[in-house]
Design a protein around this nucleic acid. Sequence first.
DNA 1: GCGACAG
DNA 2: ATCTTGTCGC
Length: 227
Amino acid sequence: MSGLHRWDLTPAEARELQTELAEKIDSTTPLDTQSVHRVLAVDVSMNRFATWLAAAAVVCDVHEKMLLESSTLIQPIRFPYVTGLLAFREVPALLKAIERLSQDFDAVVVDGQGLAHPRSLGIACHLGLWLDKPTIGLAKTKLSGTHEPVPNKTGASVPLMLDDRQIGVAYRTKAKTAPIFISVGHKCRLEDALSLVKRITDNRRIPWPIRAAHDEANAARCGKRIT
DNA sequence: GCGACAG
DNA sequence: ATCTTGTCGC
């Protein structure tokens, strides 16, 4: 992890940087999801009166459906929550947690948007660029774009559009529950992103690797000291 | 000016 | 994101 750029920027500088980095995103290289055995999932957990956060990075075996390795980290919060600038708040801590992993991985799944972002550089794109790995954005709610109603049936999906351009898909992982929003982070096509998400989806709304990362981050937040 | 607004 | 009790539905 050499260092693409610095993270201590003002919101205005951060937005400008996002626009520049967006040109580097690869959303055309095919990803053979059948050959993806190990997936890295990341998430962050924090307190209400947050001055610090807990980041988690977990490596999961897609075929065995089991957690192979977990790395967590407590870190002071250095950037405010600003819509569209989530990466500047969470990625620095996530990178440190990822550095501590000994296992390698074939693809990354992030809790947040990829290209379905105001400047086409959601947190999944940003992390994907730093890791230089196939990365997918998976968000629980929409940030950009519009879409037709998603059929109320497990596995249904509809295009997420923005100005006549498809930026992602709204995907119903489970009937009678709100759909999730999938978009390309880096080094894969949208169809591959959806394909991989389907492979890590069980009977729940949120794919299990993301849940695992969420649980690990949460556990780290509750059982550790500020250091 | 008004509404929207990942985690 | 997180704080919370009960409550609705499979």
